[in-house]
């Protein structure tokens, strides 16, 4: 028990630290005092609450969503290399988002939520397609097969996006920047757009924490233990797609967060999903806030796309996990 208390304390502490750094460090340094005493420096308070805070919270939400979705996908597929990016689900969500912008789609009653919902549908369809195709290729759904299928779909969907961009005028060229992944200049509306979906998706996955534990031992074993495998699988796929869709619709494609965070979490605190899921959520938020901070300060005043930073960390971790899995005989 004490190990869990420690795990949550450390993770929350890091998150708090990341938020504090995220709102105070930048081209203009802001004293943390402004947080609880805005009147001490009106201009600084304005930057903090209107620019930096929404940016930090959005980064946190996106990181949390991608990390918990990654953890769930890995558990579902028993595949430590699975995450929304490597499975091609992020690309599917991007296609949904770009189509929404390209065709100017607005779904009645959804209003501003049209974009995230279309992203989610894109994510879910891609996930189903990737899984069906991988299963068709190799019934046992080997690690490499699934990832290769993800790459195939990613490339294909990427070309559709490029086509749509090429067909549009100048105004959609900004999509390219967005595709590389960024949480800058989004503001509170984007936070409000993503927040409900991130919470709902995470909650759905959290409800399936015990089922995920059982499914790590294989679907048949899970069924022996009393898991309704079909229902649980569907719930996890939907939950993961909602999260990926929400994240992609506000920040574009940010890779490897869903890979690195659950991996580190498991390494440090064990692979029990009852804790892997919430801890990945917290750590994912912290990681992306820090990555965002680095992306806008490292070659300041120029900003790097945040996806560059996550890929810089994530790709080597991906290589490491792959190496260990193959050499570990698992």
């Amino acid at each position: 028990m004490s190990k869990n208390v420690l795990a949550y304390s450390v993770s929350l502490l890091i998150l708090a630290g990341a938020v504090l750094l995220g709102v105070t460090v930048g081209t203009v340094s802001i004293s943390p005092v402004v947080l609880w005493n805005p009147s001490s420096d009106e201009a600084a308070a304005n930057i903090l609450w209107n620019i930096r805070m929404p940016r930090v919270i959005l980064a946190g939400l996106v990181g949390a969503a991608l990390a918990i979705a990654g953890a769930a996908f890995q558990g579902l597929l028993k595949n430590p290399l699975a995450d929304p990016y490597t499975l091609g689900v992020s690309s599917g969500a991007s296609v949904g988002a770009v189509m929404t912008l390209f065709f100017g789609i607005t779904i009645p009653f959804l209003g501003p939520f049209t974009l995230p919902v279309m992203s989610m549908i894109g994510a879910l369809l891609t996930m189903l397609a990737v899984m069906s195709f991988a299963k068709l290729v190799d019934r046992s759904m080997k690690m490499e097969t699934v990832i290769l299928t993800g790459i195939i779909f990613s490339s294909f969907l990427g070309s559709i996006i490029s086509l749509m961009i090429a067909l549009t005028g100048e105004e959609l060229r900004q999509i390219i920047g967005w595709l590389l992944g960024s949480v800058s200049m989004r503001g509170w509306p984007y936070v409000r757009m993503a927040l409900p979906f991130v919470l709902i998706g995470s909650f759905v996955l959290w409800l399936k924490r015990r089922e995920l534990n059982a499914m790590l031992f294989g679907e048949e074993r899970a069924q022996h233990l009393g898991v309704d495998v079909r229902k649980s699988k569907m719930a996890i796929l939907i939950g993961g797609s909602v999260l990926t869709g929400a994240a992609v619709s506000v920040s574009g494609t940010i890779g490897f967060v869903g890979l690195v965070v659950p991996h580190m979490t498991r390494l440090l605190w064990g692979s029990d999903h009852r804790h892997v899921l919430p801890l990945s959520f917290i750590n994912g938020a912290a990681l992306l806030i820090i990555c965002d901070l680095v992306s806008r300060t490292i070659i300041s005043p120029t900003e790097l796309p945040i996806g560059v930073i996550t890929a810089f960390i994530g790709a080597p971790v991906f290589a490491f996990i792959f190496f260990r899995q193959r050499k570990g005989g698992a």
Partner: peptide, 23 residues
């Protein structure tokens, strides 16, 4: 009790046995 299979993720003995309480 099925036949043994390889696993991709590490579990402790207690975690594994505890899973028997799922139902």
């Amino acid at each position: 009790l099925p036949q043994l299979h390889a696993h991709a993720f590490a579990h402790t003995v207690r975690e594994t046995v505890s899973l028997g309480r799922y139902p």
